[in-house]
């Protein structure tokens, strides 16, 4: 029960933050897009996006004290798998033009067909990956 309540509160914060950014700055919220502008030396394009990322980092540091349980879980797979997964997530998001925030939240919230398609593929390929890693049909 508590899990569902946290989910609803968390989802409200996520939707609220994305809506606020869209109305206050005029842009949809997309973490991989912001990171892409930050790491690709397009510094002028990054502008306020740096502040957004700084806000996320400030919250990440605050969480160490105010809600450590939410960030303390080990990743649970070997280091080489962590590296491969991260390359796939980063590269895939850039190639797909967005990640879970840009496509699954703002894109679907904007009723963009490409974002609905992206979300379905994200989930289906994630489901298949977990299925295979957990032993598949054995």
């Amino acid at each position: 029960m508590e899990d569902y309540l946290s989910a609803l509160i968390g989802g409200t914060l996520l939707g609220g933050a994305a809506l606020f950014l869209r109305l206050a700055l005029g842009y949809p919220l997309g973490i991989s897009g912001f990171l892409s502008k930050a790491v690709s030396f397009r510094l002028a394009l990054a502008d306020w996006r740096w502040s957004f990322l700084a806000g996320m980092l400030a919250a990440a540091i605050a969480l160490v004290w105010i809600y450590p349980q939410s960030i303390s879980e080990p990743l649970g797979v070997e280091l080489w798998l962590v590296a491969v997964a991260a390359l796939l997530v980063g590269g895939g998001a850039r190639i797909a033009g967005g990640c879970t925030s840009g496509h699954s939240l703002c894109g679907m919230g904007n009723l963009d067909v490409d974002s609905v398609v992206a979300t379905v593929i994200f989930i289906l390929s994630g489901v298949l990956t977990v299925f295979l890693m957990e032993g598949g049909l054995q």
Binding site: V77, L81, V84, A85, A86, L87, L88, V89, G90, G91, G92, A93, R94, I95, A96, G97, C99, T100, V117, A118, I121, F122, I123, L124, S125, G126, V127, L128, T129, V130, M133
Partner: peptide, 11 residues
């Protein structure tokens, strides 16, 4: 791109 992302996300 979507497929690569999903695989990495699931891993």
């Amino acid at each position: 791109g979507c497929l690569l992302f999903g695989v990495g996300w699931g891993m």
